[in-house]
């Protein structure tokens, strides 16, 4: 297609589409069209494999998510030996559970205690432990969270409904491309004797970022 033709089509305003009475397929948004174009260029050049793209999307939409991190936390609550090993060698223990891969090469586990509450941010962009938590929520990527978590962590935590005793220190961890963090929240009271599977159901995504607490047992 010539540039002039593409420009002419590009000049169509939304109201012009009424003339077509939606007889044709609905036109995607401008960024969506550009992304499709990029994908076609890269595919035709043999730089990417469309099947690999589908695999990546399927993985992050359906397979990888906070349930992985929740299992790590539940096991740490359930088994002191596991917990000690996790804190001493997080990557070794996490890899043994199979939760390694993209953006999970270097993960540190930071433990909440009555004295210290940890929260995680990426002030530069949105670095996040994908194999354990999946893709970050949009608030994690927002300017508001990225800028304010370091400046006024207690105010940000309060907005998430997390209020801490004055005596509890808040420690903010800034993620990078090289190092990401998983918060090990404190085990809720009244969970003695629960199985790992039941404990995992209490672990929320936000509790592993430090912007929430685990759920209380029913």
């Amino acid at each position: 297609m010539s540039q002039s033709n593409s420009k002419k089509l590009g000049e169509l305003m939304p109201h012009d589409h009424h003339d077509h009475d939606h007889a044709h397929a609905v036109l995607p948004s401008e960024p969506a069209l550009r992304v499709k174009a990029i994908e076609t260029v890269l595919t035709r050049k043999g730089l990417i494999d469309p099947a690999a793209l589908d695999e990546i999307i399927d993985t992050y939409q359906n397979k990888v998510g906070p349930q992985n991190g929740a299992l790590v936390v539940a096991k740490a609550w359930h088994d002191d030996t596991f917990r000690a090993a996790l804190l001493a060698d997080p990557m070794g223990v996490i890899a043994e559970l199979g939760f390694y891969g993209r953006q999970g090469e270097h993960v540190d586990v930071v433990e909440n205690t009555p004295d210290t509450h940890n929260m995680v941010v990426c002030t530069l962009c949105s670095c996040y432990p994908w194999p354990l938590l999946g893709i970050p929520p949009s608030w994690y990527k927002s300017d508001a969270y990225r800028a304010r978590s370091v400046r006024e962590p207690r105010a940000v935590l309060a907005e998430f409904g997390v209020t801490l005793p004055e005596t509890t220190k808040v420690r903010v961890w800034d993620s990078t491309a090289e190092m990401r963090y998983l918060v090990l929240p404190m085990r809720p009271k009244g969970t003695e004797g629960m199985t790992v599977q039941d404990l995992a159901k209490l672990v929320t995504r936000d509790s592993m970022i430090g912007t929430g607490f685990p759920k209380d047992p029913a």
Binding site: S6, L9, A37, I38
Partner: peptide, 23 residues
């Protein structure tokens, strides 16, 4: 890997394809 011209050309082709494909 992909120049702006290449992307613009394919973008136009995709747009034309959408506008000419029956709903």
């Amino acid at each position: 890997f992909a120049t702006p011209d290449q992307v613009a050309e394919l973008r136009g082709l995709w747009e034309a394809a959408y506008l000419s494909t029956p709903h």
